[in-house]
């Protein structure tokens, strides 16, 4: 059965790039263009992994979504990879180990998204089944 990845990002082009990359690797991709819709989809479809943009409508929308996902019984254990160019906006570079206490995500992926790096990170948490 195809593993499903939920991409939550308001940049439609970037969603399509990620879809192209991940579908070619045998993953199924569903997407949401905002945090609220992303939370609904996560609860409803229970994806195997979530790619989440930090900054959407609100500057910290991605963080809020991550907190909500970690609170939900159905979504708590879904691995989250956070897409970020946030260092350019805030000057703060994230580190999954140092920041795990206040940011409950598994990985950070800096934009521009390198297909190889994206696939490597997804495979790390979600080995392909085909």
């Amino acid at each position: 059965m195809k593993r499903t990845i939920l991409v939550i990002d308001d940049d439609i082009d970037l969603v399509e790039i990620i879809r192209l990359t991940l579908e070619s690797e045998g993953y199924g991709v569903i997407d949401a263009q905002n945090g609220a819709r992303g939370l609904d989809l996560a609860r409803e479809k229970k994806p195997d992994l979530i790619l989440l943009d930090v900054m959407m409508g609100e500057i910290d929308e991605g963080f809020q979504v991550a907190y909500e996902l970690r609170k939900g019984d159905n979504t708590r254990d879904i691995p989250i990879i956070m897409l970020t160019a946030v260092a350019d906006q805030t000057g703060y570079a994230f580190d999954p180990e140092k920041d795990s206490d206040f940011l409950p995500v598994d990985e950070y992926l800096e934009k521009p998204v390198s297909p190889r790096r994206l696939v490597d990170l997804v495979r790390k948490h979600l080995p392909p089944t085909i």
Partner: peptide
């Protein structure tokens, strides 16, 4: 960066 990611994705796929 989106353009770069797009071209890289096309090349990769």
């Amino acid at each position: 960066v989106t353009a770069q990611s797009a071209v890289e994705a096309v090349l990769a796929v």
